[in-house]
Design a protein around this nucleic acid. Structure first.
Lengths: 222, 222
DNA sequence: TTCGACAATGAGTATTTTTTTCATGTTAAC
DNA sequence: GTTAACATGAAAAAAATACTCATTGTCGAA
């Protein structure tokens, strides 16, 4: 699971970062609206958390613009107390949930988890099901009809990303961003290796990973 | 056994803490609803005791939210006299028992013990049974077909934690929190040592402890 | 209160697994 | 056919976990 927080208060972002670490969640932080939009346009997140009051560009604007661009990542808006207008606006524009500031961090995560596992992507509790494979995201175990594979952390992250959105094409850059994190200097060949390993493991299933030459990869039904 | 009390009256929490100590029960205390939810989302407790009237966030809300998150730890609600509505609400939302304030400590602990050994986790009286091992939580004795082991306190706490929820993955962090307590600075290597010792003891049984690399441990059937 | 036995911990080494690098083979597009 | 992108295999490097041992701490019995 990877989350984007767009929030300018350092005190808050520090706490969120720490909480993510404890819960084994990957996250990125954008400190203003401009940066936020830039990050949010990258369709690699399970959930985006948008503060409304932000420098440069408001959360509402960000939401509006990413939805225009066809990004349908679940969005949770943070609204200041009493600005119900904003809340309504946000929901109108396609926010999926909202939370009134000041909020408790744990409540935020409760809602994030709820958004992150909405059942429209074959997610059943802690496992993702697609065709004849299922993947336990807690134990990182890939189950096929004939065999069971314990995946490494990186393998698991790539599979989870592809499996959560079958038929969506992910660029190599997006995979790097989500699995290795931004500003990591990693050889793109590593992606090829992990895809190769995954392909070996799903070879006898109804699932395949296609190469989109010059772009990236996508997972789908055979 | 580890219990969470969410209760804001210091007089009560002091007494509970003392009573736990006498009975050799580990406990944590949260003084308001926010903190309570934070603690309660950590699936390391055998029982959670929730006062309903709490600062910041009510016990009902906490219960609601932890159940949404799939935490199925038994919950005992404390309701003020006459607020029967609250009682019903609590049971509706998935509370497992309730107690009307003011209550006698003896009764509270009787009910806690009852909740703590509900038979859905192989708990029979003071022993936990799973496959061909059983573990006496009072005497810290692990019984296998061929042998009997007297476990040390730490060994016993880890085994109890794993044994009570087979197949659930516990992160190293959660194990530290439950066995050593919060804010303890302990080398994670200690977990490995105890897991190693436990594995040696269950080697000829139907039970195994799996490593989930990069995450933690889980106990299950071979 | 002191002693002895055992438990808990820290530090270090060994082992296993993961991650990355590198070298080379294959395929698709032009 | 040439070239760039991708696939594959093997091995080096790094990281995580397993295990060992020495030291320190704790607790009960004498």
């Amino acid at each position: 699971m990877r989350i984007l927080f767009v929030e300018d208060e350092k005190k808050i972002t520090d706490a969120l970062q720490e909480l993510c670490k404890i819960q084994n969640i990957d996250c990125d932080i954008a400190n203003d609206g401009e940066e936020g939009l830039l990050f949010a346009l990258n369709p690699i997140y399970d959930v985006i958390v948008l503060d409304i009051m932000l420098p440069i560009k408001s959360g509402i604007e960000i939401l509006q613009q990413i939805r225009e661009q066809g990004i349908n990542t679940p969005v949770l808006m943070l609204t200041a107390k009493g600005t119900i207008d904003d809340k309504v606006k946000g929901l109108d524009l396609g926010a999926d949930d909202y939370l009134i500031k000041p909020f408790s961090a744990k409540e935020l995560f409760a809602r994030i988890r709820a958004l992150g596992r909405r059942p429209d992507h074959g997610i059943k509790g802690e496992t993702i099901v697609f065709e004849d494979v299922n993947f336990n995201t807690k134990k990182n175990i890939l189950q096929t009809a004939e065999k069971e594979f314990k995946l490494s952390v990186k393998e698991a992250k790539i599979l989870e990303m592809l499996l959560k959105r079958p038929n969506q094409v992910f660029t190599r850059e997006q995979i790097l961003d989500r699995v290795w994190g931004f500003d990591k200097e990693v050889n793109e060949n590593n992606i090829e290796i992990y895809v190769h390993n995954l392909r070996k493991k799903i070879i006898n299933t109804q699932v395949k990973i296609d190469t989109i030459r010059g772009v990236g990869y996508t997972l789908g039904k055979k």
